[in-house]
């Protein structure tokens, strides 16, 4: 039962784990969130049913929208599905396609996906969709410096900016885990992830209240399978960000170090467990803090920026 898997199969499994596991993680978060609020909540598999239901529905496009409107969800999902090839999802050793791009490459793919959805929202002429994408673009410009400084920290720590290299560095000794640069960069990245997945500081991530609506508003005009793709896309994005946080920064243990089937299966289970654990923490944070007003987002971003900048500072004096 421990035959060695060929490398391409493992590479495919990385994508499939993220693609098929993402709705389950979303379902677990929704259940935990409901329990925190004293509700019973949907079943864990509900996101799969939602996606299946949407796929059976009719797709409409607003009059005047071009083919790009319909192509955008496909491009976005394609971009999201490429990222699992670049980051350590299941294995601790680099897979051949893992060296196609570094952390910045992954970041570019995430931005590309967000960009095409924003362009599609512009095509519709709907005020809500445009408001959502305009906000999303504005705020991602504010959090961008934080991400850059996190990348700088990684680059200074490892001498490269490949995610595999950082995960290996973190695994190498306890001193690497406890050094302030690593802790600060991880905390800054976590704050960015809370923002990017629409948890904190201004959004209710499923809410359709104009005051704090960012992510949800962008897909207002899509319907049917295209809406399903967009929803799946945001689940994929969340799963990818959780994977980066846990497998690269916080707990890069439990990854398969061989090609054996058993260890790869174990790594799949470990990844889903880690993503659910991060999700539970996120849900608890989401539900225990009040949302800020929209324009207070700079305060949140400045706190994350502080963490990331201090991470780089501590490295410059050597030994941080």
């Amino acid at each position: 039962m421990s035959a060695a898997l060929p490398i391409p199969v493992i590479q495919l499994l990385q994508v499939l784990t993220v693609a098929l596991g993402a709705p389950a993680v979303t379902g677990v978060i929704a259940t935990v969130e409901a329990r925190l609020q004293g509700r019973r909540g949907p079943r864990v598999l509900q996101p799969y049913y939602d996606l299946a239901k949407l796929c059976r529905k009719e797709a409409l496009a607003p009059s005047g929208a071009t083919a790009f409107f319909l192509a955008a969800p496909l491009i976005a999902v394609a971009a999201y599905l490429t990222i699992p090839l670049l980051i350590p999802v299941l294995t601790s050793y680099g897979l051949p396609l893992g060296y196609m791009g570094d952390i910045l490459g992954g970041g570019f793919l995430l931005s590309l996906a967000s960009f095409v959805v924003a362009v599609a929202a512009l095509e519709t002429g709907s005020p809500y969709a445009q408001l959502g994408s305009s906000r999303a673009k504005t705020f991602s410009a504010i959090t961008e410096p934080v991400v850059l400084f996190v990348v700088f920290t990684v680059a200074l720590l490892t001498g490269t900016d490949l995610p595999y290299a950082l995960a290996a560095t973190v695994r190498s000794s306890a001193g690497q885990v406890i050094r302030p640069a690593h802790l600060l960069a991880s905390a800054a990245l976590f704050m960015v992830i809370l923002h990017e997945t629409g948890r904190i500081p201004v959004e209710t991530h499923t809410g359709t209240n104009e005051f704090g609506m960012i992510e949800e508003a962008r897909s207002f005009e899509h319907s049917g399978p295209y809406l399903a793709l967009l929803k799946w896309g945001s689940m994929l994005k969340q799963m990818i960000l959780f994977t980066i946080l846990s497998d690269v920064f916080l707990v890069p243990w439990g990854l398969a170090s061989t090609q054996r089937l058993g260890s790869v299966l174990l790594a799949i289970v470990a990844l889903l467990a880690k993503a659910c654990a991060v999700g539970v923490v996120v849900a608890v944070i989401d539900n225990s803090f009040a949302k800020l007003r929209l324009f207070k987002i700079t305060e949140y971003a400045s706190a994350a920026f502080l963490l990331a900048v201090l991470g780089v500072f501590t490295l410059y004096l050597g030994g941080g």
Partner: peptide, 18 residues
């Protein structure tokens, strides 16, 4: 980069950073 600090130094630095 320079060598990794030991666990004690790392902990001291992390506490100072906090």
């Amino acid at each position: 980069m320079t060598g990794v600090p030991g666990v004690y130094t790392g902990a001291a630095n992390a506490i100072a950073a906090v």
